[in-house]
Design a protein around this nucleic acid. Structure first.
Lengths: 196, 196
DNA sequence: CCTACCGATCGGTAGG
DNA sequence: CCTACCGATCGGTAGG
């Protein structure tokens, strides 16, 4: 008879992911040992290997976990009612709201991509590209860029992604400006800047 | 008689810095061993320790080296003749030009700051803050923000820093858009967005 | 007593 | 779910 799965299985799996993301965000992937993760979870290193078969597996799972949240949030905002500018503004609010709640995973997603093997890196990059592609379509519509301007549209979109993705290095949601105010500021600057 | 310093001393010191920056940008600080650096330089590990007394010393020196270039370039552009918008545009061109020539050191400066000890991290952050402060003054003038709007000015400046600092993740200077075109695009969008 | 540089190895810790 | 270990490699230093 197969031994039943622990009732804590999913909870513990998630704890490992969240804890690993915190440590990797602070110390880097190579600077975080599996033992560090185990100690912070108050479990043995061997138990970590019961849930994930390698350190890279943990990194990949943490990235997938957060990226799937982002994809959901962005496609909902993009597919909502309203004109392009309104939906764009909603996307920015959603992104910054999400970053606020998952700062460590966000930094890990942005900074540790090169630590994945080729196949897995490709899988993550594809997910990121789909998000960026949806935002690029919105921006293309707002800026009035035809299909012949795809290079310009891509560069514009990536300049915008920089504005929002860079926030993790300096923005404090509990500081003088909150996430919604920052989202409006970024939206206003960018829309005024690219409006056709 | 004291034995003289090797005539290759400065050349070799610089080789270590540049090589270490390349490896650290790719593999992360903890993922790069002193031996990796030595092998890539075709010298012994012991010789690395003749030039730098610890791995962290190498990281710090590489960051200082690049940061001092950035500071020079930015303060020159900021202090040049011309109105605020012209000087701002020059800063953006200078920054992107510099990033292009020092991609690895740029990534290291942005990504490995937490690997430094407190004192050294503080020294680097102070240098970065001076650059950001100079750019913030330019932007404040352009956007017509008084001293009472310093929080807004800071947020605006950091949104802009995101646009340019994020380029290292996606921009290919040999791609369809060159560094000068991208600098103009970023400048145009941002200036139209914040102009008072 | 200085600096330049090597082959070999130190005490500890990594992922597994 | 743990302790006990491994082959290898880590950052840093010894003698000469």
């Amino acid at each position: 008879m197969a031994r039943p799965q622990s009732p804590d299985y999913d909870t513990r799996r998630q704890l490992i992911l969240d804890t690993a993301a915190d440590l990797i965000a602070k110390e880097g992937f190579a600077g975080t040992s599996v033992n560090d993760v185990a100690a912070a979870c108050d479990i043995s290193k061997s138990l970590i290997y019961h849930y994930y078969s390698s350190k890279e597996d943990i990194l990949f799972a943490a990235m997938e976990d957060y990226l799937s949240d982002l994809r959901l949030v962005v496609s909902e905002a993009v597919g909502a009612n309203g004109d392009g500018e309104t939906r764009f503004r909603t996307v920015v609010h959603s992104l910054l709201e999400n970053y606020k709640n998952a700062g460590a995973k966000h930094r890990v997603l942005l900074q540790e991509l090169d630590r994945l093997s080729g196949d897995r890196r490709k899988a993550i990059v594809e997910g990121e590209d789909e998000i960026v592609g949806q935002i690029a379509e919105l921006i293309g519509g707002i800026a009035g860029l035809g299909a012949d301007k795809s290079k310009t549209r891509t560069a514009m979109t990536m300049l915008f992604m920089g504005m929002v993705n860079w926030t993790h290095t300096w923005f404090d949601p509990d500081g003088p400006i909150n996430a919604d105010q920052l989202a409006d500021m970024a939206t206003d600057i960018f829309l005024r800047g690219v409006r056709g």
